[in-house]
C-alpha cells in the first residue's frame, strides 16, 4: 500500500486534489481511498488530505502517519506544521515554491520543488495550485497516468475550466519529467 499526505491551506483545493488523484488511480485499475483530515473549515487554515493506493481492497481507516509521498501546497506551512513527519525512507516530497529550500529534508527522501503558483497563474489565471501539483505528482511517482488525470479533471470541471487545469497539470508534469 502506498500513502500520500497533502498539506495545504483551506481553499487551496487539497481535498479536491486527493479525490482526483484517487479517481485517476482507480482509472488505472488500482484500489484507491481519499479523505480529508476533518478540520475546522476555514479559509487559510492548515488542512490535510490523504490518499491510499493498493492493488487490493483498502480497509484501513486511520489517518496517514507514515506517507510514501507528501505534497506541500504552500511552502509557508513548513515553518508552522511538521509537514515531513513520518515520511518513509525512499519517499518523495513535492513542495510548491519558487525558492531554494531553506529547510532540512529527512534523510533518504527525495525533494521536488515546483513553482506551481506561477504555472497556475499562467495557465488558469488564478493561483489554484492543486492541478499543477497533481501533474507533478503523476510525473514524480508514476502512480497515476497523465491521461487518467486528464479524464478525472474533465469529469469534475466544466469544459473550459477543465482544459485550463489540464494545461497547468501538463506544464508541471513536463517540468518534473524533464528534470528526472
Amino acid at each position: 500500500m502506498r500513502e500520500l499526505r497533502i498539506h495545504g491551506r483551506g481553499g487551496q483545493g487539497s481535498v479536491t486534489a486527493a479525490e482526483l488523484i484517487a479517481v485517476a488511480a482507480f482509472e488505472g485499475g488500482v484500489f484507491a481511498q481519499a479523505f480529508p483530515a476533518f478540520g475546522v473549515e476555514r479559509r487559510g487554515a492548515p488542512v490535510q488530505a490523504f490518499v491510499r493506493l493498493d492493488n487490493k481492497k483498502i480497509r484501513l481507516r486511520s489517518q496517514v502517519y507514515e506517507p510514501d509521498y507528501i505534497i506541500v501546497q504552500d511552502s509557508t506551512l513548513i515553518k508552522d506544521v511538521n509537514v515531513f513527519m513520518g515520511v518513509k525512507k525512499g519517499g518523495i516530497v513535492i513542495v510548491n515554491t519558487e525558492k531554494k529550500p531553506d529547510y532540512v529534508i529527512p534523510e533518504g527522501v527525495k525533494l521536488i520543488t515546483i513553482d506551481a503558483t506561477s504555472i497556475a497563474l499562467k495557465a488558469i489565471g488564478l493561483p489554484i495550485t492543486n492541478t499543477s501539483l497533481m501533474g507533478a505528482f503523476a510525473a514524480a511517482t508514476g502512480e497515476i497516468q497523465f491521461f487518467a488525470l486528464e479524464k478525472a479533471l474533465n469529469h469534475r470541471f466544466p469544459k473550459e475550466l477543465a482544459s485550463k487545469n489540464i494545461a497547468a497539470a501538463r506544464i508541471a508534469f513536463d517540468i518534473v519529467k524533464g528534470a528526472a
Binding site: E19, A22, F35, P36, R61
Partner: peptide, 12 residues
C-alpha cells in the same frame, strides 16, 4: 455509517 470517515471518503 461513520460520519466523515465514510461519508466524506472517496473509494470504489
Amino acid at each position: 455509517f461513520d460520519g466523515f470517515i465514510l461519508s466524506h471518503t472517496y473509494e470504489p
